[in-house]
């Protein structure tokens, strides 16, 4: 079709007015990240030598550990009062822990905003004293989940704290001791956890006949790539999705399959490749137990081709 009426190709735009936010994001987020400890900053909190300052005073260390609970009332009161002079606590709010950290700001550009992370008996927030600004805050009761993830920066992995909030939004925090902070937040938020968990997307749709890790063959200009991801076989068809992709790169209902077969060839796992032919081209999968996948695929496809009333799995009455 397109051969008969060739369409003019779209041309990319470099117009600064249209691309400025994108360019800024790319420049702050991408590009080469150097190794070794020769870097002091990568669009990030200054990395070397800064957190040491905070660790000097013993009281700061105690605060970092969230050990305030164990202090006597008088000491607690004194610390609370001295910190309250600079930090905007609400009436009656009690500090549990604080440590240096930051908040990943996303907006016109994405960057780490350094400050101090405070955990109180009712809030988690990131506050900057100079110039004074509340960088991020959430009520503990609004935190649905907290997890640690790795961010690669300055050539090494740094643990970050990902928070999922009840309103569906997310936040990324850094902290001098992310694991300790996450543990304390978990401990604190358990008090509020009574809402039922939202079902994840995997539990929707038809049940899986078979699911697991498979390699998907993606043709590229002059080469190809085997990509790892999650495959899922249901009574409707087969799908495969990489964790770094937005949607499933392979999603073929049985009705669209012209042929399915096993052929031999090189793959990251084993010498058998499952080929699925469709009108739009062939898809290839490989991995552990691929012959079993192929067998179940053939059976399920056979069932789907039978007239509805004669399907062995159809409800009979």
């Amino acid at each position: 079709m397109s051969d008969a009426f060739p369409l003019p190709a779209l041309e990319p735009t470099r117009d600064a007015r249209a691309t400025l936010p994108d360019l800024i994001e790319v420049l702050l987020d991408k590009g080469i990240v150097l190794h070794l400890d020769l870097i002091i900053a990568v669009a990030d909190i200054p990395l070397i030598g800064v957190n040491l300052k905070a660790a000097i005073a013993g009281i700061e260390t105690m605060l970092e550990y969230g050990m305030m609970r164990q202090w006597d009332e008088q000491t607690r009161g004194w610390v609370q009062r001295s910190i309250s002079r600079t930090v905007p606590f609400v009436e009656g709010e009690e500090l549990v822990m604080r440590m240096t950290g930051g908040f990943r700001h996303t907006g016109l550009y994405t960057t780490w905003r350094p400050g101090t992370v405070y955990l109180t008996d009712r809030r988690l927030f990131v506050f900057r004293r100079e110039p004074r600004e509340m960088l991020w805050e959430s009520a503990l009761s609004d935190i649905r989940d907290i997890s640690i993830e790795a961010e690669v920066t300055a050539g090494s992995e740094r643990p970050r704290i990902r928070l999922q909030l009840n309103n569906g939004s997310e936040a990324l925090l850094s902290a001098a001791e992310p694991n300790r902070l996450a543990d304390l937040v978990r401990e604190r938020t358990r008090l509020f956890r009574d809402a039922p968990r939202v079902a994840d997307a995997d539990s929707m749709g038809p049940p899986a006949i078979r699911q697991g890790h498979l390699w998907y063959h993606e043709p590229r200009a002059g080469s190809f790539v085997w990509r790892g991801g999650a495959a899922r076989l249901t009574e409707n068809g087969i799908s495969w999705k990489s964790p770094v992709d937005a949607r499933a790169a392979l999603n073929v209902p049985y009705a669209e399959m012209l042929d399915t077969r096993l052929e031999s060839g090189n793959s990251p796992k084993g010498s058998l490749i499952l080929v699925i032919d469709t009108a739009g081209g062939s898809f290839r999968l490989a991995g552990d137990g691929i012959a079993d996948w192929a067998g179940e695929l053939t059976q399920a496809r056979g069932r789907s081709l039978l007239p509805a009333g004669t399907r062995p799995d159809a409800t009979a009455w």
Partner: peptide, 15 residues
């Protein structure tokens, strides 16, 4: 395989 990162992070790919 559970790592989901940007372009400059390792990916579950064989080239």
């Amino acid at each position: 395989s559970d790592r989901t990162g940007g372009a400059n992070q390792p990916r579950d790919e064989l080239r």
